[in-house]
Design a binder for these strands. Structure first.
Lengths: 219, 219
DNA sequence: CTGCATCCGGGCCGATACTG
DNA sequence: CAGTATCGGCCCGGATGCAG
């Protein structure tokens, strides 16, 4: 990508990761180190030449490192992209209200908005283990000591198991849907939902329609 | 921009703001509401048709609103881009070590990395007012109650006045340069630098060369 | 002068084919 | 499995035009 030519930290960050697909590559590598084919699988639709080119550039810039068996992983600096990516995902979370048929979904992607929604408010709050079954492969979310951890696979002894279509499970996690509505939409809830509500950031919501709604109320 | 077609909060955020120049437009609008020409001035090099197109799209997506005198401003949702932008700027801050001659600079841009570096650690810490003179127009940074505020113009009674080339002033703010080195590089410091050090986030540094440095030390 | 729209050359993007 | 090669098309960048 052509540089913006500005002595500005944001512009310089975008000089590195502002290209199309680049931040999504970082998303995949934040979940786990990846081989080339893993990245292709996690980034449906990416042209192979573009993936190769991005990886070369990211390696040159010190964001990504390749080991001897051509496995790609983030450098320490690259791992620090977790914060901006989670913040961006949180900003985009209000767009998750419904899932289009044309959209692809992987339950690991839930990591990003959810890590922000439930992240770091109170280090003394009670721990909670939630198993999420929104596609073929379950994922487990562990909340403990103010930290959020996602890992693939089912939980050994979950406090809560959420099963259902992705958009409905997201609605439950975000608090947009209550249990009754969610079950009407095809979800099933095993365990008690109430502990979740105390663990959310208070300010997580308010999407693009918020302003519309307000102007509409003015009339 | 073409959609990534993923039911993923990050991908959906990038569907909206992932285009080239878009996040820099948001940066300018976070600093203040802008007229079209203000945006052109704050985004050197942006093609005029592209700016017009981006603004139209951002308005359609509910990120930007235009008033009757064609002044552009962020919607409430758009203002929430402050967090991801500051996080990205913080990620890019290690690239600010030196300024190329070809790069343009505006002191207002310091808001973004600096707001993150000094932001929100302890609400009880002592307030501090710093006047920064790194180009024609001074800016003032106010630290109080764990919040960071930037505003254009000089300070009434600053605790600290930093004057010098942008990269040197950035080095002082970030702590990369001490007073002596900074003065050798053309900066002047009025007041006591020491209070700054206690106000920085402890983990703000470590850029792309960190891993290189470490491997070099291994040899 | 401000606030765009139009036009055009070049490069990046996207899809497919192909190779060690 | 891990990419490279190729090619059409669209987006980006720069210049210019033009209405209020």
């Amino acid at each position: 990508m052509r540089s913006y030519g500005q002595y500005c930290a944001l512009a310089k960050a975008l000089d590195i990761v502002g290209d199309r697909w680049t931040l999504l590559i970082a998303r995949e590598l934040l979940l786990r180190p990846c081989r080339y084919s893993d990245l292709q699988a996690g980034l449906p639709g990416i042209p192979t030449n573009l993936l190769a080119g991005r990886l070369r550039q990211l390696e040159e810039d010190g964001v990504v490192a390749v080991d001897e068996r051509s496995r790609y992983a983030l450098t320490p600096w690259g791992e620090q992209l977790a914060e901006p990516l989670q913040a961006l995902a949180r900003w985009g979370a209000p767009l998750m209200d419904e899932m289009e048929d044309s959209e692809t979904f992987r339950s690991e992607w839930l990591d990003f908005p959810v890590a922000f929604i439930f992240g770091g408010t109170d280090p003394d709050r009670p721990p909670l283990t939630v198993e999420i079954r929104a596609d073929e492969s379950p994922v487990t979310m562990e909340l403990a000591r103010g930290e959020v951890h996602f890992r693939p696979g089912a939980a050994l002894s979950p406090d809560l198991v959420l099963t259902g279509p992705p958009a409905v499970v997201v609605g439950l996690l975000s608090g947009r849907l209550d249990q009754k509505h969610a079950e009407d939409l095809g979800a099933s809830v095993l365990g008690d939902l109430r502990p979740l509500s105390g663990l959310r950031r208070p300010d997580w919501l308010s999407g693009p329609e918020a302003s519309e709604r307000r102007t509409r109320m003015k009339r």
